[in-house]
Amino acid sequence: MSSSLIQFLPVHPFRSQIVKNAPDAVPQTEELEALQADLNELRQQILERAKKADDDLRTIEESMRRLKEKEKGKAKAVEKMRRECAL
């Protein structure tokens, strides 16, 4: 298995007041740089969550495939036993 299934970490709340309350004037450069840093950090977290979700989906699909193969093997064994008992 590529990864174990664990809960997603919560995303931190968006801190920027520029987006929440749009100012009438152009915000200061420091505020805009802080907003850009926050957005880049959020983007990175979203990409990490998407990668983890993809890994988890692969893990689940692989587990389901193994279970189906196991059940198929059990069904074949039962059918074989029935044929042997009928003879």
Rank of each mutant, 00 (worst) to 15 (best):
L39I: 15
A37V: 15
D24C: 07
V19Q: 01
E30T: 12
E30I: 12
P13I: 00
E31N: 10
A25K: 10
R15N: 06
P13S: 00
A37W: 10
E30L: 13
S16K: 02
D38A: 07
P27G: 02
E41G: 10
A34K: 10
K20N: 04
L32C: 15
P27E: 03
E30M: 08
F14W: 03
A34S: 11
T29C: 07
A22M: 08
P13F: 00
N40E: 15
Q28Y: 09
N40P: 01
D38P: 06
E33L: 15
Q36E: 13
A25I: 08
I18Y: 02
V19F: 06
L35R: 01
A37Q: 13
T29W: 12
N21K: 08
I18R: 01
K20Q: 12
Q36G: 00
V26P: 05
E41F: 12
S16W: 03
N40C: 12
E41N: 11
Q28A: 06
E33S: 07
K20A: 14
E31G: 03
Q28K: 11
K20H: 13
D24H: 07
E31F: 09
A22H: 07
L35K: 02
E41V: 05
T29N: 10
H12F: 04
A22N: 04
E31S: 13
N21S: 07
L35E: 04
V19G: 01
P27S: 02
H12A: 05
L39Q: 08
V19S: 04
I18N: 01
T29I: 14
Q28V: 08
N21E: 14
D38T: 09
P23I: 02
A25D: 15
V26T: 14
A37C: 09
D24A: 08
A25F: 14
D38M: 08
D38V: 05
P27Y: 02
A37M: 12
V26C: 10
F14P: 00
H12W: 02
E30P: 04
P23E: 02
T29H: 08
D38F: 04
N40V: 12
E33H: 11
D38N: 13
I18D: 01
T29D: 12
K20Y: 08
N21M: 04
N21Q: 11
L32P: 12
D24R: 05
D38Y: 05
D38L: 12
E33P: 05
L35V: 10
A25S: 15
V26F: 13
I18M: 01
E33C: 13
Q28E: 15
P27K: 00
S16T: 05
P27W: 02
D24I: 07
A22K: 07
E30H: 12
Q17V: 05
Q36Y: 13
N40L: 14
E33N: 11
A25R: 11
L39F: 06
Q28I: 06
L35N: 03
I18A: 00
D24F: 11
E30D: 15
R15S: 07
H12V: 00
E33D: 07
E41M: 07
T29L: 14
N40D: 13
D24L: 12
K20S: 14
A25Q: 14
A37I: 13
S16Y: 03
P13A: 00
F14Q: 00
N40Q: 14
P13K: 00
A37H: 13
